[in-house]
C-alpha cells in the first residue's frame, strides 16, 4: 500500500511546484474576496495595485537576470531611486523630455556596466551589482543631498499619476503591458530562447556558437530598463522622489520571482509566474494589513513562503529522480 501511494505523493509535489502558484494565487484572491472585509473596494484594489506595480515592474524585468542563471540584480535599489529623482529633479529644471532622456541614459549605463562585468568578465553577479549599488546610491545621495524632490502640483508627472484606466491607476496598466511585452520577449523570441538556454546550460549554449556574453548584457539591460520604468511609476504616483524610496526592492523583487516558481539556478521560470508571485505577495500583505497584523508578521510570512516554495520545488525534483 505504501509503495502504491509514493508516486502519487511525488506527483502531488510536482503538480504543486509546477502549477501551484496559479492555483494558490486564485485561491488567495478568492479567500480575500469572500472573507476579508473591505478587500473588494475600489479604494483597496487601487491601493494594492499602487503598492504592487513598482516592485512588480522591477520583478518582471529582473526575471531575465534570474533565468539567465545570474541570481539577481541588487542595484535595482539604486536604479529605481535614480530614475525617480532624475525624472522629477531634471524635469523641474530642464523639462520632461530631457529628464526622460537622462534617466534612459543612466539606465543603459547601469545595464551595460553590470552586463559587461558579469557577461564578458565572468564576475559574480551578486558582487558586481552590490558594488554598482554602493557607487550608484552614493552618487545619487551625494548629488541630491538626500533631499526630497517635489514635482509641480499641476505638472505632467502629477497628471499621469492621476490617470485612471477602467477605474484602475495607470501604474497597473503599465505593469500588465510590461508583463505582456516581456513574456513575449522571453517566451517567443530568439533572444528569450537564448536567455533560457544559457540559464539551463551555459557550456552547451557557448559551444553552440552563441555569443553568451552579449546575451547576459541583454538580460541586465532589460532589468535596468524595467527599473527605470518602475522609478517613473513610483515618482508619478506620489509626485515626489527621494534617494531612499526603493529600499528593499532588491530582495523584495527576488522574493516575488522565487515564490512565482522561477528557479534561481536559471533556465526554469516565466514572466507570467513572476506576475503571479507579485500578486500573491501583494494580496497576502494586503490581507495582513487589513487584518491589522503588523509588519513583523508580514516579513515572516514572506520569508516562510520563500523557503516553502523552494522546498516544494526541491523535494519534487528529488521525488522525480527516484
Amino acid at each position: 500500500m505504501k509503495r502504491g501511494t509514493r508516486p502519487s505523493g511525488a506527483q502531488t509535489l510536482q503538480w504543486v511546484s509546477e502549477r501551484g502558484i496559479f492555483f494558490f494565487t486564485a485561491a488567495l484572491v478568492a479567500f480575500a474576496a469572500l472573507f476579508i472585509d473591505n478587500f473588494v473596494s475600489i479604494v483597496n484594489i487601487t491601493d494594492v495595485f499602487h503598492r504592487a506595480a513598482p516592485i512588480g515592474i522591477v520583478a518582471v524585468g529582473m526575471t531575465f537576470v534570474v533565468i539567465s542563471g545570474n541570481y539577481l540584480d541588487l542595484s535595482v535599489v539604486a536604479q529605481v531611486a535614480t530614475a525617480a529623482v532624475v525624472l522629477i529633479a531634471v524635469s523641474n529644471s530642464a523639462g520632461l523630455g530631457l529628464a526622460v532622456l537622462a534617466a534612459l541614459a543612466i539606465a543603459l549605463l547601469y545595464g551595460v556596466v553590470n552586463g559587461v562585468a558579469v557577461g564578458y568578465l565572468r564576475a559574480n553577479a551578486v558582487i558586481v551589482t552590490l558594488s554598482t549599488t554602493f557607487v550608484g546610491l552614493g552618487i545619487l545621495r551625494w548629488l541630491s543631498g538626500g533631499s526630497i524632490f517635489f514635482g509641480p502640483p499641476d505638472g505632467p508627472i502629477r497628471a499621469l499619476g492621476q490617470v485612471k484606466v477602467v477605474g484602475l491607476p495607470l501604474s497597473a496598466l503599465v505593469l500588465v503591458v510590461m508583463t505582456a511585452a516581456l513574456a513575449f520577449l522571453l517566451g517567443r523570441t530568439n533572444f528569450g530562447f537564448l536567455i533560457r538556454s544559457f540559464g539551463s546550460n551555459r557550456t552547451a549554449t557557448r559551444l553552440a556558437g552563441v555569443d553568451t556574453s552579449r546575451v547576459v548584457v541583454g538580460a541586465f539591460l532589460i532589468t535596468s530598463l524595467s527599473a527605470m520604468v518602475a522609478g517613473f511609476v513610483l515618482a508619478a504616483f506620489s509626485n515626489t522622489a527621494v534617494s531612499t524610496m526603493a529600499q528593499g526592492f532588491d530582495f523584495g523583487a527576488l522574493a516575488a520571482i522565487i515564490i512565482g516558481g522561477t528557479s534561481v539556478f536559471g533556465g526554469k521560470g516565466s514572466v507570467l509566474r513572476t506576475l503571479l508571485g507579485v500578486i500573491f505577495v501583494s494580496v497576502l500583505t494586503n490581507i495582513l494589513v487589513l487584518s491589522k497584523i503588523g509588519f513583523g508578521w508580514q516579513q515572516m510570512a514572506i520569508g516562510a513562503l520563500i523557503v516553502l516554495a523552494v522546498s516544494v520545488d526541491t523535494l519534487a525534483r528529488k521525488a522525480a529522480r527516484r
Binding site: F251, I258, V264, G294, G296, G303, V307, V310, L315, K318
Partner: peptide
C-alpha cells in the same frame, strides 16, 4: 536536509528573522 540552495534558504531566513526581530521588539 531539504537540499535548498543556501542563497535562497538564507534569503527566506533574512525575511523571517527580520520579521521576528520586529515582532519580539514590538516594532
Amino acid at each position: 536536509k531539504v537540499g535548498i540552495n543556501s542563497f535562497i534558504a538564507t534569503l527566506g531566513m533574512l525575511f523571517v528573522l527580520r520579521g521576528l526581530a520586529f515582532v519580539l521588539s514590538g516594532e
